[in-house]
């Protein structure tokens, strides 16, 4: 099952409350949205996939990525890229250094690394931004840099945790298109978590609630 994010009977409970019950597969290049109001278990599902679930939760089932069982691996070993609500750019690094932090070490040599970063910035309409202080960027620019950093790390799957909710309405469409185009181009499965039906529509793929029920849009 190459390139697939596969949730097999993934059930998460807190006490006797069932928060997550998902059986689904997202193919390479495909997108799926988990939608629901806050507190409904969306973030819990996401935490289970990134490996940051608090010990109080009970998890059963399996999470497979490219056929590899990652259910109990530490976050760093999962090859799962994550975009938060906020871009979480590191304020002590320049924009280019933030991207270099994401770029794996197998791209070696300063020239090659600088070139890769310049190309990535140019492809996002951020030509010449490498030496900028992240604090001077607009919200939309920060979001683009954060996505570039996540994708440069060559993840096997992309998770989006309400990445558009903090953006101004007029920017949101533009960034949504940017993110989903990039995710599709990367050819990896993308999982979006949101409470906003517009996000889900833009994502394109199927939409379910945290308990696995398909939702109409």
């Amino acid at each position: 099952m190459s390139g697939t994010l596969d949730l097999q009977d993934l059930r998460i409970t807190l006490g006797d409350r069932r928060l997550v019950d998902l059986s689904l597969a997202i193919p390479a290049g495909g997108t799926l949205t988990i939608m629901g109001p806050s507190g409904a278990g969306k973030s819990t599902a996401l935490a289970a996939i990134t490996g940051t679930l608090a010990p109080a939760f009970r998890l059963s089932g399996r999470i497979l990525l490219n056929g590899r069982d990652i259910t109990h691996l530490p976050t760093r070993a999962r090859s799962v890229g994550l975009m938060f609500q906020d871009p979480v750019l590191f304020p002590h690094l320049s924009v280019g250094q933030n991207l270099a932090f994401g770029l794996p070490a197998h791209v070696c040599g300063q020239t090659a690394r600088t070139a890769r970063i310049a190309a990535a910035l140019a492809s996002a309409g951020l030509d010449g931004f490498a030496n900028r202080d992240p604090a001077t960027l607009s919200g939309g620019q920060k979001a683009r840099v954060a996505l570039l950093r996540t994708l440069l790390a060559e993840p096997c799957a992309l998770l989006l945790d309400e990445p558009f909710s903090r953006l101004d309405t007029d920017l949101r469409d533009q960034i949504r298109r940017f993110v989903f185009d990039r995710a599709a181009a990367a050819g990896i499965p993308t999982l979006l978590v949101t409470h906003d039906a517009d996000d889900a529509r833009a994502a394109g793929g199927p939409v379910v609630d945290p308990l696995g029920k398909p939702l109409p849009l």
């Binding site: 940051t52 994550l82 938060f84």
Partner: peptide, 25 residues
Amino acid sequence: DRRLATAATLGYGRIAGFAFTTLPA
């Protein structure tokens, strides 16, 4: 917390992630 989580999702080890993303601040 979020800096460390970001470093972890990018594949960094605990020590390196802490040193590179959190230590300066």
